[in-house]
Design a protein around this nucleic acid. Structure first.
Length: 808
RNA sequence: GGGCUCGUGGUCUAGUUGGUUAUGACACCGCCUUCACGAGGCGGAGGUCAUGCGUUCGAAUCGCAUCGAGCCCA
């Protein structure tokens, strides 16, 4: 055996020899199932450190549950559709999606996605993920697309999906509707403009009302003005009419509690639509809709004289014109939070268009969320807060290309909606026509729906997909699978999206919650304590760690970095510490194999265990208890820490030091067998406890102890309760503590640690001191009469036990 | 502006049912090339737990307030 542990060699060896089938979910097995609703990542090609953390958690559980006798399904999917890939493809081929036809464009997207999947898959495999690749799913494949479209049909037919004209968040650059979940907020510098609105009916003397707004370009869309009902300053204008400058149409002044009298002048103009509050007012007061900005972010014909300008250009021109007319009182700078498209950071507009929506059943979702076990518990409140704050239904139509088409046509003659039938799926309604004529008018000419589905419509089905849910039979199609499934692991950043949408769709399609437990992981922060980002230059890729220290080290960091759910900081020194532990484990194994290479282990064979052997085995069985308990509660950090402390402090520092000379047989064969037994028993258990965390090393270790066997096919260790021995632990602790105290004495007195002392007088009834004599290289004499000893510097007190050191 | 989490030696951290000398790691200091390991071993110094008030016989651990940090978001 090499002196240094070489992860690159060991890990490569096992990667090559392990067979994928080791991790297959076997429907024929008569075992309880443990199905994981693994996140299908977006195939960007980059499996980043945050992904890797999450996947480590999943793999710890998958491996642990397998060893606990569960039939584990750890599938892997890919959430392919969406704008980022479209943008990448345009960049890569130097084209615009409008230059080539949809089919060609989709093919290019598919190709890029496949390449990215291959890259990310490689990283998952390199990290030792025990994924069942026979269950891989890809949302852009026909089978999955069919499933998505079928789910659309089911929800359309049961009234959960409808089409309506409604204001939606709109990205003028991407030219598509987006959901709230896709809107981000950024601080921007804006100006607050104080504009004069003329009061109507002031014949003699013209009077004005001053209104502050950040969006003068929306003046054409101004449909009302509002003041707070208690605002004494504006009592006289409530209910009256004002003239909108430049566009000269009149609007009514409403009183509304939501107006903030402290902001600007306390008078607000209501436009269709400047922000979400405008939509609320528009609905509440039944106001007309005047759209002045179109889908490309340009002014419509409503904005007479500014038509065709972009909103930004228009704003500039209107400010100039207001100024020229003396209607601009003043401008002041303002820090503003604007909603931007999560993808391209373009400020969003709120535009009313005809879109498809999914009904949000607030109460049912909250009830379902309460029926799910959240870990950590406190994240449940995030979902609740989100549901409570949702004002509009979920807009699921997108004006994009690389996504699942909405399986709908419109009759050319009467305009009626024609829904695809189940046997037509998957279908692209822009490419094919329905088989049956229009049910309304008998027409046979149709126009296909151009819009496609929000990608969350795909990924929110993942739980149903992995369970093999049959949307017609209303049950899982596969054998041995329960629904709800066992576990949903995911990050807290997508609670409002993926978790929310999955619960919603599961309720709508199955009337059940999707999973029993949701396990939320934190984000990975950079070494500087901030979120990793390109601009901060604090990025780490898992690959860097693996190249230098191996996958096991990365996995150890993931386990020990922090409690599940809390954000963990990446630190190289933790990586180094993990790497040192690998070397320690390797040294332990090397030492053990010096003595165990031809040892024939037989359980329970050693009857004459020495105190220190019993002490070790007692602590080992307690370790099984604590690690098992930690695993059951997703406390991977505690499990890994307990294992480290045991292996390093208990086994290596204390036990091996104490039992060493017996193993070397320095004083004959006495106690040799029992030491071998204890050591073997410990190593075999240790490799099993390590298997979920560091599968490569655990397998290597096991291959020495049990040649030809895989630790990953073994059962999780059972606690041997009769081995837990309080008496042996107390005596063993005393032996270890006295040994430590003697070492300290030698260190303080400048005596080499391996130099013998005269003798040790230990004032105790009884003690198995043989191992201590060897470890301290000093004779031990047990003494009874404590009263006679002098309390000088040569008398040590070890937990109440007096130890006298006789130098010569 | 809201929500969530958190604030323990130089750095990171354990300490979620309040009760003896507050855990460990890294860094630091001293000693040791001892036959598993020098990316090692042995030993040592260093904190009163953000701040304030309160509950209690007793608080890092409970409550309130203030300050600060991070994350997610409006």
């Amino acid at each position: 055996m090499e002196k240094t542990y070489k992860p690159e060699i060991v890990e490569r060896k096992w990667l090559e020899s392990w067979d994928d089938s080791l991790y297959y979910f076997d429907a024929a097995l008569d075992k309880p199932s443990y199905v994981i609703d693994t996140p299908p990542p977006y195939p960007t090609g980059d499996f980043h450190v945050g992904n890797a953390l999450n996947w480590c958690y999943i793999d710890f559980l998958a491996r642990y549950k397998r060893m606990r006798g569960y039939n584990v399904m750890f599938p892997q999917g890919w959430d392919c559709h969406g704008l980022p890939t479209e943008v990448k493809v345009e960049e890569r081929h130097g084209i615009s999606k409008r230059q080539i036809n949809k089919q060609e464009f989709r093919a290019l997207c598919k190709q890029l996605t496949q390449e990215n999947i291959a890259q990310m898959k490689g990283m998952m495999q390199r990290l030792g993920m025990s994924i069942d690749w026979s269950k891989e799913f890809v949302t852009m494949d026909d089978r999955y697309k069919r499933f998505t479209q079928l789910s659309f049909l089911k929800m359309y037919h049961n009234g959960m999906i409808y089409q309506a004209e409604h204001p939606v968040n709109w990205c003028p650059r991407c030219e598509t509707a987006i959901a709230f979940a896709e809107v981000e907020y950024e601080d921007r510098d804006a100006s607050l403009n104080y504009i004069l609105f003329k009061k109507v009916g002031e014949e003699q003397e013209v009077e004005y009302v001053e209104i502050a707004t950040t969006r003068p370009e929306l003046l054409a869309s101004c449909v009302a003005v509002a003041v707070h009902p208690d605002d004494e300053r504006y009592k006289d204008i409530a209910g009256r009419e004002l003239v909108v400058p430049i566009f000269e149409h009149t609007v009514t002044v409403y009183e509304d509690e939501s107006v903030d009298p402290a902001f600007g002048t306390g008078v607000v103009m209501i436009c269709t639509f400047g922000d979400r509050q405008d939509v609320r007012w528009w609905k509440l007061h039944n106001l007309p809709l005047i759209a002045s900005i179109d889908e490309r972010g340009r002014m419509t014909e409503v904005a007479r004289g500014y038509e065709g300008l972009t909103a930004t250009e228009c704003k500039k021109r209107i400010i100039e014109d207001l100024n020229a007319q003396g209607l601009l009182k003043k401008r002041e700078p303002l820090q503003q939070n604007v909603g931007v498209c999560w993808r391209c950071k373009t400020p969003i507009e709120i535009i009313s268009t005809r879109q498809w929506f999914v009904r949000v059943m607030h109460d049912e979702i909250i009830k379902a969320s309460e029926a799910i076990t959240w870990y950590p518990e406190h994240f449940a409140i995030r979902l609740k807060n989100w549901v409570d704050s949702m004002e509009w239904d979920w807009c699921i139509s997108r004006q994009r290309i690389f996504s699942v088409p909405i399986p709908i046509w419109y009759c050319k003659r009467c305009g009626a909606v024609k829904v695809a039938s189940e046997d037509e799926l998957p279908v692209d309604p822009t490419m094919t026509s329905p088989k049956m004529p229009c049910a309304n008018c008998g027409g046979t000419e149709f126009v296909g729906e151009q819009d496609v589905l929000d990608t969350w419509m795909d990924s929110s089905l993942s739980a149903l997909w992995v369970a093999g849910w049959d949307l017609n039979a209303m049950q899982p199609s596969g054998k041995g699978i329960e629904f709800p499934v066992a576990l949903r692991p995911q990050g807290h950043d997508i609670i409002r999206t993926w978790a929310f949408y999955t619960i919603l769709r599961s309720l709508a399609l199955t009337q059940k919650i999707p999973w029993h437990t949701i396990l939320i992981n934190g984000m990975v922060l950079g070494e500087d304590g901030y979120k990793m980002s390109k601009s901060r230059n604090n990025f780490i890729s898992p690959n860097e760690v693996i190249q230098e220290h191996g996958a096991d080290v990365f996995r150890q960091w993931a386990a020990i970095g922090g409690a599940v759910g809390s954000d963990v900081q990446f630190r190289w020194k933790d990586i180094v510490a993990a790497s040192k532990f690998m070397q320690k484990l390797w040294s332990i194994l090397r030492f053990a194999m010096l003595h165990l290479s031809d040892y024939q282990y037989e359980e329970g064979s050693a009857v004459n265990l020495r105190v220190i052997d019993k002490w070790l085995l007692s602590k080992l069985n307690k370790l099984i208890l604590s690690v098992t308990d930690a695993m059951e509660n997703y406390k991977f950090d505690e499990a890994m820490k307990d294992i480290r402390i045991f292996a390093w402090n208990v086994l290596a520092d204390d036990y091996i030091e104490l039992a060493k000379s017996r193993l070397y047989g320095r004083s004959g064969d006495e106690g040799k067998e029992s030491a071998k037994y204890a050591l073997y028993e410990t190593l075999q258990t240790l490799s099993k406890l390590l298997a979920p965390f560091i599968p490569f090393y655990a397998e290597e270790m096991y291959s020495y102890i049990k040649p030809g066997k895989s630790v990953h096919k073994e059962q999780w260790p059972e606690v041997k309760r009769d081995m837990i021995n309080a008496e042996a632990e107390m005596e063993g602790d005393l032996i270890a503590d006295i040994t430590r105290a003697v070492r300290r004495y030698k260190s303080e007195h400048g005596i080499p640690l391996n130099a013998p002392l005269g003798k040790l007088e230990i004032y105790v009834e009884d003690l198995d001191s043989g191992d201590m004599e060897n470890a301290t290289a000093t004779k031990v004499e047990l003494c009874k009469d404590v009263s006679k000893i002098e309390n000088d510097e040569n008398t040590l007190d070890v937990n109440g036990t007096k130890v006298r050191i006789i130098k010569e």
